[in-house]
């Protein structure tokens, strides 16, 4: 790996956003993911090299550490912030189409449910995996999911629910999507959701942690 890509990856893994970030103490005063990404682009490194050679592997390390309970939610969120510091420099290339991402994922918390932390974690890990994420927020109706699917054909769908009461709405949303788009892949998650429930409602994939979703999506990367 190119040295600067290694440095960017290290910043993301350790949550070093920019020069002003005082953590980790050993990197105080040094450039962070923000400045290093700018520097890498200015020195001619292509955006996709930064994405695939630094950000995606760094977030994969973070996701795996979280799955193994070596780090916790706050550290994941620090890494996400550092990743965003790098990503802001790449986004113009995504919007012009000069750099392509792996596909689109539409994500949201189902109708009646206002919990968003778990959904946000998954959204940010999927984005860190190189995908474009369309986050519909919380309390998302089946109709809103369907409308967004129509606007983004072929996108993958992620549904979150945190309550046993709103799991029923997850089932309704899966049924509504299946009725119009039988071939779309639907991922589900949330505290009360299980693999068995996923199978029972006709969704395609359940993961107890965000990295599981990223790993599942890899096989479909464009």
């Amino acid at each position: 790996m190119n040295d600067i890509l290694k440095l960017i990856a290290n910043c993301v893994e350790n949550g070093k956003i920019d020069r002003n970030t005082p953590y980790p103490p050993g990197m105080k005063g040094q450039d962070g993911a923000d400045e290093l990404t700018r520097l890498a682009l200015d020195s001619g490194i292509k955006p996709e090299q930064i994405l695939d050679g630094a950000l995606v592997p760094a977030m994969a390390v973070v996701g795996d550490k979280f799955s193994r309970k070596e780090i916790y939610v706050p550290q994941m969120l620090m890494s996400a912030k550092a990743m965003n510091g790098a990503m802001k420099h790449l986004k113009p290339y995504f919007s012009t189409g000069e750099t392509k991402r792996k596909g689109k994922v539409i994500i949201g918390t189902v109708a009646g449910d206002l919990h968003d932390i778990g959904k946000n974690l998954v959204a940010m890990m999927i984005e860190g995996g190189g995908w474009e994420v369309i986050d519909l927020g919380v309390d998302v109706s089946s109709e809103k999911f369907l409308k967004t699917i129509d606007e983004n054909p072929g996108a993958f769908i992620g549904l979150s629910a945190l309550l046993t009461t709103t799991m029923e709405n997850m089932k309704k949303t899966v049924a509504a999507i299946r009725e119009k788009h039988s071939g779309l892949k639907i991922l589900v998650g949330g505290a009360p959701v299980t693999k068995e429930y996923c199978e029972r409602i006709g969704a395609d994939f359940y993961s107890p942690d965000p990295q599981g979703a990223v790993n599942y999506l890899k096989q479909f990367a464009e």
Partner: peptide
């Protein structure tokens, strides 16, 4: 969270 600071929100 809306302002993008997921950690502070959490």
């Amino acid at each position: 969270m809306k302002d993008g600071d997921l950690l502070q929100g959490y």
